[in-house]
Amino acid sequence: MRVVFMGTPEFAVPSLRALDEAFDVVAVVTRPDAIRSRGKKLEPSPVKAEALARGLRVIEANRITPEVSDELRALAPDITCVAAYGCILPDSILELAPLGCFNVHASLLPRWRGAAPIQRAVLAGDERAGVSIMRVVHELDAGAYCAQVSTEVADKPCADLMDELAELGGGALVEALRHIEDGAASWTEQDESLVTYAHKVEKAEMRLDPSDAALANARRVQASMDAAPARCKVAGKGVRVTRARRSGGASLAAGEVSVSHGRVLLGCADGSLEVLEVKPDGKREMPASAWAAGLRGDGIRWERV
């Protein structure tokens, strides 16, 4: 089966890898090189890097122009697959291949349509997160799905959960495409009464706050990503908290800080948040026990940034 694949970030790489090992990937469409790190140099998307390493044809496009559509149509694909490409697809792509256009969406639809489904699942305290293989339609993430896979959220950091779901999604995509090719896929229409939307997570949402519950702050840390990190001020200095958990130990008043035997507890509205790993502003990431050595004196407070 001839496949056109469209994707950009790291999440899409396992899907591309799985497709290339199972089918004939005739082209990979991805967003152009961009500044993706602090080096201030243009870098290829993770999908482009993987495609080039595999010797696949790469087409870079910020949007799907008629010229791009014509180039893809000339390749005569049987099916089109999308995973976090990052661009609205025109009818020319939805109608490109006779078997249709399908998306690897990182949620258990109809829950969490939209841009940040994994982070929203963590912030909401969902017990499970997953991936749906769905038909691409005009309305955002509204198509019927033919496969879903899931995993426990537990206490997994969002980045680790994302990696796990990416791998699950790649396997589910290949299996789904085999069923679609054979005409054996079973489709489930989404129940519109159960739809929720995963809007982009803003930095302000991730600010740790002593007036909030310890669980809410712990979920912010768990959902933290580089684009929207979980931050606060301790003793007047900014710090990113990269790993933490709700403490079952001594309860502190909101805003209080306890440093004892290398443990750092932040008092919240209904209990304490135990800080396990941090990245102080201008410094490297480190265990909280090492950071705690600099938190001397009585009456230390913490606050929202």
Score class of each variant (00 low, 15 high):
76 A>P: 14
49 A>H: 10
34 A>I: 01
39 G>Q: 14
68 V>C: 13
120 R>C: 05
51 A>T: 03
91 D>L: 06
37 S>T: 13
96 L>M: 03
77 P>E: 00
75 L>E: 00
100 G>K: 09
108 L>G: 08
61 A>I: 00
87 C>S: 15
116 A>E: 03
74 A>K: 14
47 V>K: 07
92 S>R: 01
42 L>C: 02
109 L>V: 07
65 T>Y: 04
34 A>Q: 05
82 V>I: 05
78 D>T: 00
62 N>W: 13
83 A>R: 10
115 A>W: 04
128 R>G: 07
71 E>V: 13
47 V>T: 11
82 V>Q: 00
112 W>V: 03
130 G>M: 00
80 T>E: 11
39 G>E: 14
73 R>Y: 06
120 R>P: 06
109 L>H: 06
70 D>E: 15
56 L>H: 15
69 S>Y: 09
93 I>S: 13
28 V>E: 03
115 A>C: 00
58 V>D: 10
85 Y>E: 02
37 S>D: 12
114 G>T: 10
43 E>R: 11
48 K>Q: 13
72 L>D: 14
49 A>C: 08
59 I>D: 05
74 A>W: 10
50 E>H: 07
108 L>T: 04
91 D>N: 15
78 D>F: 09
120 R>T: 02
62 N>Q: 14
54 R>F: 02
49 A>W: 15
49 A>G: 11
84 A>I: 12
118 I>Q: 01
99 L>K: 09
99 L>A: 14
77 P>L: 08
79 I>C: 11
96 L>V: 05
40 K>E: 14
38 R>S: 12
110 P>V: 00
63 R>W: 13
69 S>N: 06
37 S>F: 05
112 W>R: 01
100 G>S: 12
103 N>I: 06
70 D>N: 13
104 V>T: 04
74 A>D: 07
59 I>N: 09
116 A>S: 05
40 K>P: 10
109 L>R: 03
89 L>Y: 08
130 G>I: 01
100 G>I: 06
51 A>E: 03
